[in-house]
Amino acid sequence: MVCDNCRERDSVLKLVQVIDGTPKELHLCERCAAEKGVESAVAAPSPAIGELLQKVQQQLLVGAGGGGTGAGDAAAASARDAVRCTFCSATLADFRSTGRLGCPHCYEAFEGSLRELLRRVHGNARHTGRVYMPPRAETADHGGSLGELRDRLKRAIEAEQFELAADIRDRIRVLE
């Protein structure tokens, strides 16, 4: 079906507008839909976030030229899953199973995958809302207090992140 707006491209989605109680159907192509403020990525029913991440990861692998053997893909995927957030020791596999990230620093640790995921979920990955300036830290640098470091140490040990754990232990000793 041809797009009702430009009458050139194929329509990819149906927009139902209810005006004065009468629904009006519009078949739109992706570009015209976007102009009307409808993101096709958004219009699609959103699957569970973990599933979506899996798709994103697969796509990133293909994009990175990893579209070779299945075994190669699997190896690359498990390598990606092995990357840990240095703050909370969470992995992408953790995110896939819980649907929740571990801490704010996970957004840096998994930036590539998350950017694509955010794009899929929101139709866009760039924040255009309120610009926020955090207050100047009055206490020691955040995450640097003894209590914080001890919690990070426990998490690192649990995740068998021994190098990171040793690093955190050194920082604790300095503070002590």
């Binding site: 976030i49 704010p104 957004y107 950017r115 955010l118 990955a125 760039r126 924040h127 809302g129 309120r130």
Partner: peptide, 15 residues
């Protein structure tokens, strides 16, 4: 985050 805005546990709330 400079690009993603306010960070949340679930990415469906980010921005």
């Amino acid at each position: 985050h400079p690009e993603f805005g306010f960070l949340t546990a679930c990415p469906t709330n980010t921005g």
